[in-house]
Simulated scan of single mutants.
Amino acid sequence: MGNALVFQSDFGLLDGAVSAMYGVACSVNHDLKMYDLTHDIPQYNIWEASYRLVQTMNYWPEGTVFVSVVDPGVGSDRRSVVARTNSNHYIITPDNGTLTHISKNDGINQLRVIDEEINRLPNSSESYTFHGRDIFAYTGARLASGIIDFENIGPEVDPNSYIKLPTKECTRENNKINGTIDILDIRYGSIWSNIGRTEFINLGAKYGDTVEISIENEGKNIFHKLVKYGKSFADVNIGEPILYVNSLDQMAVAVNQGSFTNEYGISTGIDWTISIKVSN
């Protein structure tokens, strides 16, 4: 029966790149179950590739194989790796930071470097710019199908030796908690922070309270307003901002039936900070 194979990339769907990866996987095992996480990662955005994996992975069964291809260093000496997480999922990816959020939230217990002499699409050794097809999709399909075991991927290395993107932890100052804006809910324009619900609730906040929210980018104030903390978007009028708990149990800010991101020009990363202050 085999495990599911899930793809994500920054390729988009305007040409045949994603279809080529599917074709390789299908040629390995015609009965393999294949799915898409997303192919709309912004070009070269390793941070977002890392976050989308942690947003999704634990909702898939144990043994699921994820192939993540956001690879601005393709063809260079960066490693091709397969990580096995503590939850027994597999991530096949360039070693460029894509494992950052998975390692923080779930943990990596084993890491192997792909032996590209063995685990590579036949007759592709002179192709240096499409490892998503030639190495990652091919290896992922063989692993998900059970044609190879994890031990056959290549040499095992220190599970902490992968490239890590810089991150920040949220911090508390009396009745205020500080964090970063990790990702955007792209379709609806809300912002998702790294501040967990528990950390926020420990400030003494309750649904219906008004809190003070400040957002800064490299020391410049972008947003500073009093905002209602609600259970759902309908707790505020259309066009008003709201603080809420998102689907990953993190604190987020949205505009009811609007785009907070577009309205206030917000982006993501450790240079984008958010502070939530609760009145005592």
Results as ranks from 00 to 15, higher is better:
163 I>H: 12
157 V>E: 06
76 S>D: 09
190 S>A: 14
148 I>D: 05
127 S>Q: 10
146 G>M: 01
187 R>W: 14
86 N>P: 00
128 Y>M: 07
193 S>N: 08
123 N>F: 14
140 G>A: 07
127 S>P: 00
113 V>E: 08
114 I>T: 07
187 R>V: 12
183 I>C: 10
130 F>W: 01
111 L>Q: 04
114 I>K: 13
159 P>M: 08
180 T>H: 07
138 Y>E: 02
185 D>Q: 10
106 D>I: 15
147 I>A: 06
99 L>A: 11
161 S>E: 06
188 Y>V: 10
75 G>K: 08
121 L>H: 02
77 D>K: 15
196 G>Y: 09
136 F>W: 06
88 N>P: 03
78 R>Q: 13
150 F>H: 00
194 N>P: 03
171 T>W: 01
193 S>D: 04
92 I>H: 01
107 G>N: 05
76 S>M: 08
139 T>P: 02
154 G>R: 11
81 V>A: 05
104 K>Y: 10
169 E>I: 12
158 D>E: 14
132 G>A: 06
182 D>I: 15
87 S>L: 12
190 S>F: 14
105 N>R: 15
180 T>E: 06
185 D>I: 13
136 F>D: 00
90 Y>E: 01
161 S>K: 11
173 E>L: 14
106 D>T: 15
164 K>F: 01
152 N>Y: 01
181 I>C: 05
118 I>P: 01
193 S>F: 10
196 G>W: 07
115 D>F: 05
172 R>M: 12
105 N>T: 11
82 V>P: 02
144 A>D: 07
195 I>Q: 05
90 Y>T: 02
183 I>M: 14
100 T>W: 08
137 A>D: 03
187 R>I: 13
175 N>R: 12
99 L>S: 10
110 Q>W: 05
163 I>V: 15
177 I>V: 15
95 D>C: 12
97 G>Q: 08
